[in-house]
Design a binder for these strands. Structure first.
Lengths: 204, 204
DNA sequence: AGGCAGCCATACCAGCCGGTATGGTTGGCG
DNA sequence: CGCCAACCATACCGGCTGGTATGGCTGCCT
């Protein structure tokens, strides 16, 4: 799409740019950002580095674009997961279940987010991008939890604090999962889900 | 190669090796592992790369040695911090206070641990080393918490689970602190301490 | 004395990779 | 048609850095 009005607008005019971002994201997920060079990314998208540099000004720009791919996929999957549930509490359950699963089992997700966090130590743009995503996820869980509490499906006296804590625990679990493969089993997964859920409050 | 000999036992053989490890640790903390080259490390220890390679076989060996420096400093500081308190609960308080402070305020600590975690994604030796350290910290908090519960200073029905959760939250807080500088203020620090402490149980 | 091992410096290499220079092809448009 | 802009390929550069080859110096041991 957008093949004709290829004027001087931004890079969304070209589907190739998106294809390059997708390819970069996949490669970054499997092998880490600085273990993937631009030749590989370009090749994975069916072009060469010369073309890549027509769409992106630097490797960092490619990384930022890969981040956007990550965010878009998260939105897509989280809405798909929560779409089935009716109650706000039910949505919370499946949202946490999805998050735990992606934390504990989806190694690609772990690789990418770990690399981005490490990059954020030195690059303010990457850090700002990731911070925006963290805000988005917090707003998401905050909204659901407030809904559940407002509808009487959950009892929690300090929602903001509870969500903060739950998200921090989730990040911590994701990180330690790298070093404790044993906690990635299916029964451990369910237990983790229940623990995180209970951090948000109690059922009435 | 002949790295043996040395009349006075094993690794104590050369103080220069330790000095190199210390220098490497400081540099890694300030600028990240792969933004520091071996020439700089050697120079910081007053030698050149040629000598560095007499003490260490590769850059990875230097990284591992820097990890050991990190562990040693943690032990030293945590024992110093908990030395003043008599009750087990008091020790828990100061241990958590120290951990929170180092998570939220000590940026060098954050840089180093973040880098090591990222490296652990690909290097099994580094991962094993860090996993050992995580085990050590867990054992430390587990021991204190069990003590506090056994002495009636704390009420907690599932210590293992509580410590797990507290440590996960602490890791998560450390990570998100990078993206939310506002949570690093002193009053926020105390609140964080209290929240983490309350995760371990209630006072009788 | 003299040999040897520990310790260190100098000089050098080679591969990797981000980035660039340049030129070719296509298609829309005046 | 002819021109230009979008898009892409080829070839190349140059800096950085982990790692090595080699030899010098020191002091202990026999």
């Amino acid at each position: 799409m957008a093949t004709r009005t290829r004027t001087l607008t931004t890079s969304d005019s070209s589907a190739k740019a998106e294809e390059l971002a997708q390819a970069a994201f996949e490669l970054f997920c499997s092998r880490g950002i600085d273990r993937v060079n631009l030749d590989e990314i370009a090749a994975a998208a069916g072009v060469t580095k010369g073309s890549l540099y027509w769409h992106y000004a630097s490797k960092k720009a490619v990384v930022l674009a890969a981040c956007d791919v990550y965010y878009a996929r998260w939105r897509e999957q989280i809405t798909a997961a929560t779409g089935g549930a009716e109650s706000a509490y039910g949505k919370l359950e499946v949202a946490i279940a999805y998050s735990v699963r992606s934390c504990l089992l989806d190694e690609a997700n772990r690789v990418f987010s770990t690399e981005i966090v490490a990059l954020s130590l030195y690059d303010t743009e990457v850090r700002a991008s990731w911070a925006g995503f963290l805000d988005e996820t917090e707003r998401f869980f905050l909204g659901l939890t407030h809904q559940a509490v407002g509808r009487g499906e959950l009892v929690c006296d300090d929602v903001d604090r509870a969500v903060d804590l739950m998200l921090a625990a989730m990040e911590g679990i994701k990180q330690t999962a790298l070093f404790r493969p044993q906690i990635c089993g299916p029964q451990s997964e369910q237990r983790t889900e229940r623990r995180l859920l209970s951090l948000l409050g109690d059922r009435p």
